[in-house]
Amino acid sequence: MAAIVLAVSEVLKKTFNLNTQYMPITSVVIGIFIGLVLWPLAEKSSYTEKFDKTGGFGKIKFSGAITSNINLLSHSYGGRITVNFNSGHDTSKAELSVTNSAYGVVGGNGFGVVYDGSIDSTKTKDFSKAFTLNEMKDYGAVGVVYTYTNAKIRITTTSGSTYSVRAFE
């Protein structure tokens, strides 16, 4: 089921632009499709998902939990995330982000992306200590029916190369 939700999320993110109203028939078809595919999750207006990943051939450990809350008009997302740098890492910069895309009512009878944002933090020194993010962000949107929230760490090495690890892929 998680693979289906992730696939649908990627299609939605690539298909719809923020605050764009689409043709009514398009909205109806999309609404039916999302309703059928995501129906098992419909009873959850709030969720927290845990993750535990390694990256850079074991040089970093990326773990924690992300949360998303859908209410009537006010919504929130965020995470409690820790990145530990193991021995042998060659990190010069670490960029941590929690992203959230919300889909819902746009205009009088449209459907589309109603919010697209992120919480970002960067670390450029003292990699002997863990890099943490513990933050929630509020946003307002009408008629949110689905959100996709994910976390990512992007590492730049001392040689200038980069790699990323996502909580959910």
Rank of each mutant, 00 (worst) to 15 (best):
V5E: 11
L6K: 10
L6E: 12
L6F: 10
V8T: 15
S9D: 13
S9A: 14
E10V: 07
E10G: 08
K13G: 06
K14V: 00
L18N: 11
Y22H: 15
S27R: 06
I30L: 15
I32C: 13
L38R: 00
W39S: 11
L41V: 11
A42E: 06
A42H: 03
K44H: 10
S45I: 06
S46M: 02
S46P: 02
Y47V: 12
T48S: 13
T48M: 07
E49I: 09
D52W: 00
K53V: 03
K59S: 08
I60E: 03
K61N: 08
S63V: 01
S74N: 12
S74Q: 14
H75I: 01
S76H: 04
G78W: 03
R80N: 13
R80V: 06
I81D: 05
T82Q: 04
T82K: 13
F85R: 05
T91P: 03
S92K: 11
K93T: 03
A94N: 03
A94Q: 01
E95A: 11
L96W: 03
S97R: 06
S97D: 07
Y103N: 11
V105L: 15
G110D: 05
G110W: 10
G110F: 05
V113N: 12
Y115L: 03
K123G: 04
K123R: 14
K125A: 15
D126P: 12
F127H: 11
S128R: 15
K129I: 02
K129N: 15
E135N: 12
E135W: 05
G143Q: 02
V144R: 00
V144Y: 00
Y146M: 13
Y146D: 08
T149Q: 05
I155C: 06
T156G: 12
S159N: 13
G160L: 05
R166Y: 10
A167S: 14
E169H: 05
